[in-house]
Design a protein around this nucleic acid. Structure first.
Lengths: 348, 348
DNA sequence: AAGCTGATTGCAAGCGCTTACGATAGACTT
DNA sequence: AAGTCTATCGTAAGCGCTTGCAATCAGCTT
């Protein structure tokens, strides 16, 4: 049996009310009394029972983190890094995180989400561009604080932490156009209704237009290696004079590389390929992948911080945080990167 | 305000006690009454408040999952897959999972772990071979149900779900010895006190001895790409006639490949390399990595199942579940693998 | 007809905490 | 000297649920 408030109260010769006030840093407690109470609490290793506190305050100090469980598994450490960021920031503020993975079926009915129904969390973070908008809207209607990561519902005022998709793709496309003097570039896009695909396409198109080139976009049903490979094979068929591929993410970029190798095209000599995401295996690939880094860990941190803000301060003016991105130049674009790369330093 | 038991009780014209009994499937409720109560509960979308239930029962229906936050990030989706398995199985049984990442500093003092101190979880799953034994022992002393994944404290009776490290490494080593007729093989080991390193080394040594070869083990301070690369460079220096490398995991196997390429040795022609883990990027590498698959998702499932068993049925005879492993033959060992690999199917 | 049984239900305490409100006492005002 | 504050602390209700125990009642037994 763990020690309770009552035990502290008895030892300190005060009431549980005073103990509660002292431990929660509330006013109305004599300095010496407070000192004594805190000391005793420390001595007996007291920590408040979360259920009792939760029942009394309607606060759980728990965040929910909902990820989409793709099938098949994506090749990416995408979710861990975000989840780690969330957990790190949450714990810093005394919160815990219930991390869960929903699949397509779960997304049909948000009401059945026990996280909310059983009032287990004070707020929710939704991770990834593939969550169904209707699902998100349903969650919003439960009036629980909500923050999206790497997603944005433009017609709503749901808070979101995203990265600068447009700018990132714009810059990496310009890198191909200007540094390498390439012209005939195609963009491998995910589904048009995915937020990040949309934005990245815009960055690509902007760069192309500015360079006086006609954009050429290939839409894919998903963004896996195989799909990227298939899409690239087709693109190479249709545009034999293709000079470069701007892929919506690293997995499809990898598919593109495999496809061109298959067609006897050397990377980057015969075809330049760039991705987006900076997954951990990018620098380990042959050739090392030029890509756009998104600060996933930091996105997790910011989303958690914002969510706890909403929980503690009540409704706030709507908020979209757009973290910067960084072009990581390696070799798949045609550059020569140093041999001294420390492979383990990448990935965040 | 979400509906409470009282609301159901009023609507059904019974007491809250009866409602509670009906909803919890306890005996002593007339069938019709039960029916009526369940119907009303469904109609108004009732779900029990977890804090109130927790306070009354001292049960949270929450599992804690503690992962070691390595620094720098490991190149692996190791944790997600395990965590997904745990979450999947837990939810199937009405449990939730608080996933958290501890670092070395956190491991100094288990008592401060608020998961336990605040009684937020009914049990704990500890993931990975790098968690400090002293930390684990401390947790055990808090008398909360505990299951280890991919770790084992042999001198204790702490439950564990591990994979057949010995057999996996044994078989993949034999593959090099027999199928490819190689002889001079070195084993790249992690720290000797890491459980999985120890076991995998044993598998390697067994295979070598059976083939009449003297085992040769290189110990590394950690198991990252860089360390694997450095260790391999040194091994090549010392044993120029080296024919193959059995790496303790895929990351170090990759380091080994990079090192030998650096020394102008072609893989697998001049040096065979095999890993362990079957990380998602393995089939995507050049050459595709021959490795030993561990069923991480399934390990998560089994650990969660066992933990819930302990929680619900009380102390059980000590338990170690050893899941099988599977040698995945690709090309880095010298085999030719089919071109038709569907890259996204791997990884679990 | 009295007593007994078992099925069904309600009563009420209690889980460990928070908090509105009232009580007390010393200090200060006029 | 009586009244007014303020700082400090206790009292007790209540958060929403579970559960031991008592109460009720119909159906049986003898």
């Amino acid at each position: 049996m763990r020690p309770s408030l009552i035990e502290i109260a008895e030892r300190a010769g005060v009431s549980t009310a005073t103990v509660s006030r002292a431990l929660n840093d509330r006013p109305g407690v004599n300095a010496e009394t407070r000192e004594r109470i805190l000391r005793i609490a420390r001595e007996i290793g007291y920590a408040a029972n979360s259920a009792a506190r939760g029942l009394a305050t309607s606060r759980t100090f728990t965040l929910g983190c909902i990820n989409y469980r793709r099938d098949p598994q994506p090749i990416s450490s995408y979710h861990v890094q975000i989840v780690e960021g969330i957990d790190h920031e949450a714990r810093q503020h005394g919160y815990h995180v219930i991390t869960t993975f929903v699949d397509a079926a779960d997304m049909a009915d948000a009401a059945q989400l026990s996280l909310i129904a059983e009032q287990r969390v004070d707020g929710l973070i939704l991770v990834g561009p593939a969550l169904k908008p209707s699902f998100i809207i349903q969650l919003r209607n439960s009036h629980i604080p909500l923050v999206l990561i790497d997603n944005l519902l433009e017609e709503t005022d749901i808070d979101a932490v995203v990265c600068d998709n447009v700018g990132g793709t714009y810059r990496v496309t310009r890198h191909l156009l200007e540094t390498h003097g390439l012209r005939r570039l195609v963009f491998l896009s995910g589904p048009a209704h995915w937020f990040s695909s949309r934005e990245r396409r815009q960055g690509y198109e902007k760069a192309m237009r500015e360079a006086g080139q006609e954009p050429c976009v290939v839409y894919m049903p998903d963004t896996t290696v195989n799909t990227g490979q298939a899409a690239t094979l087709e693109a190479l068929e249709r545009h034999p004079d293709l000079e470069g591929i701007v892929a919506v993410n690293d997995a499809t970029a990898l598919g593109a590389i495999r496809a061109s190798k298959k067609r006897g095209r050397h990377i980057p000599a015969d075809l330049a390929v760039v991705g987006f995401d900076n997954v951990t295996w990018g620098p380990l690939h042959d050739p090392p992948l030029t890509t756009v880094r998104m600060f996933k860990y930091e996105m997790g941190i910011e989303a958690a911080r914002r969510l706890m803000d909403m929980i503690e301060r009540g409704p706030l003016p709507s908020f979209v945080l757009r973290l910067s991105t960084e072009v990581i130049v390696r070799e798949s674009c045609g550059c020569k990167s140093s041999d001294e790369t420390h492979y383990d330093d990448y990935g965040s």
